[in-house]
């Protein structure tokens, strides 16, 4: 099996009102990788995502899953959507059932599974996002962060290979963000491919294995975050570069090389540790 789990080939999409949201977009999402999709507002991230599970069909171009072209028949779509799960930005557009449990079971029910399997999957999914204790709670009483996690559970219960999240961190406080990151980390460790659209460059820099940068409906750059996020054209498109990278750059101008042990810090904690390591190195004669 090839590395590519989903591949877009020259995909263009025009909304009914004439907006060209994707133009000749080609990109690859790799299996078992953490992929961050970056791009300014209106770059086409959400539109691209809606193609990945067949909600939108390209006006021209093709999509492949495991190198097989997407099939837009009823059964084809059902299969696709069970493999490619999508968590939307606003939890209120996903949650419509009375209770948490009922909502999470919506997906598995659509797959036509039997009751015992559904029960098991719902329990597992709620466990994975640490919401098992709130299974019987009414959805409308949950906090925003809890709703977000219920949404993720609702997708997890379909046991997808890929989970796509559109700006999952938006609206979450720092603690919730950390918790959600931990949830995603567990899922990734369990072998699920994770794709996230985000405006948080620092998060993408620290978290992703692979970054895709979109600009006006096409792919501008792709590669590892440390490779591409520092390129000038990417910096221009996104309007900024990761803070950590900026700090490292400034320090290197001062003659402090954090790359000493051959590895570049990507998160705040790594940066603090690297600076601490450098200072102790300088202290000991």
């Amino acid at each position: 099996m090839s590395d590519a789990i989903i591949r877009l080939e020259n995909v263009s999409y025009r909304y009914p009102d004439g907006t060209a949201a994707l133009t000749d977009c080609s990109l690859t999402i790799n299996r078992n990788k953490r992929t961050a999709v970056l791009g300014a507002n209106g770059a086409g991230k959400t539109t691209m995502f809606l193609h990945l599970n067949g909600i939108l069909q390209p006006s021209s171009g093709r999509l492949f899953r495991d190198d097989i072209p997407f099939e837009y028949s009823r059964t084809g779509l059902r299969k696709l959507r069970s493999k490619v799960g999508m968590v939307f930005q606003n939890p209120d557009s996903q949650l419509f059932s009375a209770s948490v449990q009922e909502d999470v079971s919506f997906g598995p029910m659509n797959l036509g599974l039997d009751t015992t399997t559904i029960r098991r999957r719902v329990a597992e999914a709620l466990g994975a996002v640490a919401m098992a204790g709130l299974a019987d709670k009414p959805v409308h009483n949950l906090s925003y962060g809890q709703k977000k996690r219920v949404c993720i559970a609702g997708v997890l219960a379909m046991e997808p290979e890929v989970i796509i999240l559109d700006e999952p961190m938006a609206g979450l406080d720092a603690a919730m963000q950390e918790e959600l990151t931990a949830v995603l980390e567990r899922l990734h460790a369990g072998g699920i491919t994770i794709v996230i659209a985000t405006h948080d460059l620092d998060f993408a820099y620290g978290w992703a294995d692979q970054a895709l940068v979109m600009q006006s409906g096409g792919l501008l750059a792709h590669g590892t975050p440390e490779d591409i996020l520092l390129r000038p054209e990417v910096g221009n498109a996104l309007g900024t570069i990761p803070q950590i990278a900026e700090i490292i750059h400034s320090l290197s101008l001062l003659g402090i090389d954090l790359r000493g042990n051959g590895y570049l810090p990507r998160t705040r904690n790594e940066l603090v540790a690297a600076i601490a390591a450098v200072t102790t190195r300088e202290d000991t004669p």
């Binding site: 059902r78 799960g85 999508m86 557009s93 996903q94 997906g107 379909m158």
Partner: peptide, 24 residues
């Protein structure tokens, strides 16, 4: 608009036009 968004999320969770109740 919101109903449409909800419909989209339902589709992406495999909804094909039939509702399934809790019990078989």
């Amino acid at each position: 608009q919101r109903a449409e968004r909800i419909h989209t999320t339902m589709l992406s969770r495999g909804f094909t036009g039939q509702f399934h109740g809790q019990r078989r």
